[in-house]
Simulated assay, not measured.
Amino acid sequence: MSTMGSGELGREIELSEIIEALSAEFDIEANTHGDSTVTIRLEEGGPAFTLYRTGSFQIRGTESREALFEAKEDLLDALQEIGVEFDEVPFRQNNAVYLADFGTEIQLETLAIHLGLENVEYEPEQFPGVIYRPPELGTVMLIFASGKSIISGTISREEAKKSESHLQAQILQIG
């Protein structure tokens, strides 16, 4: 699983000053995207923090909801340590991506027909997988010929497991 969340500092920030101050305190990686956005990592291989001049931020690349909220605290602690002031910071988990491996090759054309063309997008010349939106589940699944699948559209591990079980049953039906 990989999670993403976003928050708001409630004030504008000067990104070049933030990068300079964080670089003096931490061994950070920083990639600027113009003068209004920067993506940093406070530790190698750690979550990515995208900061916007407006004071909003996103966190990507944590493996659980708990780790996402811990990463938020790490970011806020680092910002406070370099003197950035802010009040209460609203933050929420926006998305999670779950991975499934069905352990078998999948005939994507056969699967697309079996799942019902009204619930599937399959254009192999555009994308190498089936995009499946089961109407009863509300998730989106990207299914690849290798037997691997990406499940998104929910932050609930239980809903992702339900989607995985549903897809497993469909794969077993087509043999």
Rank of each mutant, 00 (worst) to 15 (best):
M1G: 12
M1I: 06
S2Q: 10
M4C: 06
G5Q: 02
G5Y: 01
L9V: 09
L9E: 10
E12H: 08
E12R: 13
E14V: 13
E20L: 11
S23V: 06
S23G: 14
E25N: 14
E25H: 13
F26H: 10
F26I: 01
N31G: 01
T32C: 04
T32I: 03
T32K: 11
H33D: 12
G34M: 10
S36F: 06
T37A: 14
T37C: 10
T39G: 04
L42W: 02
G46T: 03
A48W: 03
T50G: 08
T50W: 00
T50V: 04
L51D: 11
Y52V: 08
T54Q: 04
G55H: 06
F57Q: 09
R60D: 07
G61K: 05
E63P: 13
S64V: 09
S64N: 11
R65Q: 10
A67S: 11
E73C: 10
A78W: 00
L79C: 15
L79M: 14
E81K: 15
G83R: 15
E85M: 15
E85W: 15
D87N: 15
E88A: 15
E88P: 07
V89Y: 09
P90L: 06
F91H: 04
R92G: 11
Q93N: 04
Q93W: 00
N95H: 14
N95Q: 13
A96V: 10
V97D: 13
Y98K: 14
Y98M: 10
L99C: 03
D101I: 09
F102P: 00
E105A: 04
I106A: 02
Q107G: 13
Q107H: 12
L111F: 11
A112G: 07
I113T: 15
H114K: 09
L115S: 03
G116K: 06
N119K: 04
V120F: 05
Y122M: 12
Y122K: 12
Y122A: 12
E123C: 05
P124M: 03
Q126S: 08
P128I: 00
G129I: 00
I131Q: 01
Y132R: 07
P135A: 02
P135L: 02
E136W: 00
L137H: 03
L137V: 08
V140C: 07
M141I: 13
I143L: 01
S146H: 02
G147L: 08
K148V: 05
K148S: 09
K148P: 00
K148Y: 00
S149P: 00
S149N: 06
I150V: 14
I150T: 12
I151V: 14
G153F: 11
T154A: 08
E158Y: 01
K162R: 14
S163Q: 06
S165Q: 12
S165G: 13
Q170V: 07
L172N: 05
L172D: 08
Q173E: 11
